[in-house]
Structure formats: C-alpha cells, structure tokens
Amino acid sequence: MSATCRLSALQAYAPDTVLSNDDLTKLTDTSDEWIFSRTGIKERHKLADTQNASDLALIVARKTLHEAGLEVGALTHILAATCTQDMLSPSVACILAGALNAGPVMAFDISAACTGFLYGLSLTRSLLTENPDANILFVCVEALTRRINWTDRSTCVLFGDGAAACVCSGNAGKGSAVLEDVLCKSDGSLSGLISVGGGTACRYAKGDTVGDDFFLHMQGRETYRHAVRQMTNVCEELLARNGLAMAAVDLFVPHQANMRIIEAVGCRLNVAADRVFTNVEHYGNTSAASIPLALAQACSVGRIRPGGRVLVTAFGAGLTWGAALLRF
C-alpha cells in the first residue's frame, strides 16, 4: 500500500529578465500577433548569464524551506526534476544539496522533461512508502533558454526558465495538499519528436563550434497531436480508476505548453473554461516547472481553496505523459 504523500510549502520563482514577443522580433522573423495567436504566449522569463539551473533551484528551495519552517538538517532526500542540468554530472540535486549544506542526504535528478513534476510525485510517494518519516525537498527547475536556437521561430517563442519546489512528507504542513493518485506513462518509440541536445551523442572535440544538434528540436504538428490525445486519455483513466467524474474536479491545471493544446484537452474533457487555470501567457513553457509554478500561482490568487480537488496533467519529451489528483 502506498504511503500518504503530502505536498507542503509550494513555492515558485521566475528570473527577473522578461523576454516579450516584441523582443523576439529582434532575434527572428516573427511578430507579437503571430506568436500570441498560435501559442497564447506574450512573454517568458530568462535566467541571467551568470545563473544556471542550480541557482534557480537554490532560490526556490530556500523559499520553500522558509515557508515550511523546516531546517535543512531535517531533510532526508533532495529530488530535482529537470532536463536542463548544469552539466551531465554532478546532478542539480547534488549541487543544490551542497549549496544548502544539507549533509549526507540522498540526492538525485530525474529527466522526464515536461512530465517531470508528475514522475517526481510518483517517486516521492514510493520513497515515503519505504520511509514514512522522510522529508523530501522536491524541486522542478528548467533553464531551457540555454538550449534554444533563437533563429528558429517555431521553438524559440515557446519556452522560458523557471523553478518551483515543495516539501513532500507524510505530515501536513503550510498549504499542504494530499496526493490522491498519480499515473505516469511513456512511449520511447516516439522519442524523436522532441529532443534537447548537449549530451554525449554530440561528439564535439575541443574547439569545435556547437552545431544544431546542441539545441532543442521539436516536430510541432505531431507533438501537438500526441499531446492532446495522451493527456486526455490519461486524465480519463486516472479519474475512472478513482471512481470520479470530471464534475468532481474543482480546478484543472494542465501543462502550460501553449493555449491551443490547453484548449483542445479541456474541450475533450468537457471542462468549463472557468475551471481551467493558465499562466502560459506570462511564462511560456517551463517544462518540469510548468505545473508546480502554475499551482503555486493558483494558490496565491485564491483559485485553489482548502478542500479543493485539482487535476493536473502534462506531456513531454520521451515521449512522457501523466496525470495526478491533488486534494488541498
């Protein structure tokens, strides 16, 4: 039997630098109207040249621990969901543990791209089954602008940087939510639809110029089709196995990829627009950070109230997808 997994002290952080659609017109052949009509995005955040993903993770981790009233020494695990690590090794989680002076905690990264938050919830629940007294700092962070080709208007307009974090434990904390259920899936046969280069498959010698394989690539039309179908299907499956109808959900928080995908999934699930939360207009797609960033904002503006049930879903490179039910 799975242990109770509670998320508390959910916090979010986005870098100060904002790139508007008008800013992007100076980098590639596009316009505010072209971007907004196709994506619903007006602006996105970009980390500073002196920052890395681990720096964003440290900022949001400190906010979370402060909100939770939890000493670093009480942590047993640090888990980071990201597909834009500072380097292949060490992990963002280990870099973060060192920056926090966390001591000998278990620390590791997971890479499920935009589905990272959901994969992480599944893992934290498993860790709590093994150790019900664990205090897990779970951070979702992305530095996607470091892997963007700014001359490719089909991808550069979509992505931004950001981070979010929470403490996962068996105990209730500030603003806590219970993980009622989570379901994660993948299809590796479609891995070529979305990719972020920079790994060992990029066989560069010292002094070589970085090639196109270093940057994010996406087959947009096929990705859209699979994203809409799989997010819809996994939500329906999750609700069915919990004996719930969509009417039992107070708020739907989908991955903030673009408005066309959000609207298509909402339509298929028959969710009224006033029960869907979006912030893609101001943040773009922040991959693993997308859902927790949206959840934190929804809480801060009163869209999620005590007792409310929230359905979240995401789809990302891998291909990966999933859904979760949270009770606040």
Rank of each mutant, 00 (worst) to 15 (best):
S2K: 13
S2F: 08
A9D: 05
A12C: 09
A14Q: 05
T17E: 12
V18T: 14
D22I: 14
D23P: 01
K26Y: 07
S37H: 10
K42V: 00
A48C: 05
L56S: 01
A57H: 04
I59L: 02
V60G: 07
V60N: 06
V60C: 06
T64S: 12
A68M: 05
H77A: 08
L79C: 08
A81S: 13
Q85L: 04
Q85H: 05
A93K: 04
C94W: 00
I95N: 04
L96F: 00
G103K: 02
G103A: 11
P104R: 09
A107H: 07
D109G: 13
D109R: 08
S111I: 14
T115H: 03
F117Y: 15
L118D: 14
V141P: 01
T145Y: 01
R146C: 02
R147P: 01
R147Y: 15
I148N: 02
W150G: 09
T151D: 14
T155L: 11
L158M: 12
L158E: 12
G160D: 03
D161S: 02
D161H: 03
G162A: 05
C168T: 09
G170V: 03
G175E: 09
S176Y: 14
V178R: 14
L179P: 08
L179S: 08
C184N: 13
D187Y: 11
L190F: 10
L193G: 05
I194D: 00
G197D: 07
G198Y: 02
G198Q: 03
G199V: 03
Y204M: 04
K206H: 13
K206R: 11
D208K: 05
D213S: 11
F214H: 14
L216T: 06
L216F: 06
M218K: 03
M218H: 03
R221S: 15
E222G: 01
A227I: 11
T232N: 09
E237Y: 00
L251M: 15
L251Y: 06
F252W: 06
P254G: 08
P254Y: 02
P254I: 07
A257E: 04
A257L: 06
R260C: 05
I261Y: 10
I261R: 03
E263M: 03
R268H: 10
L269G: 10
A273C: 04
R275T: 11
R275A: 12
F277I: 06
N279W: 02
E281Q: 14
G284V: 08
T286V: 11
A289V: 01
S290G: 09
A298M: 11
A298D: 13
C299M: 14
R303L: 08
R305P: 01
A314F: 04
F315K: 03
G316F: 01
G318M: 02
G318Q: 01
A323M: 08
R327V: 13
F328S: 10
F328W: 15
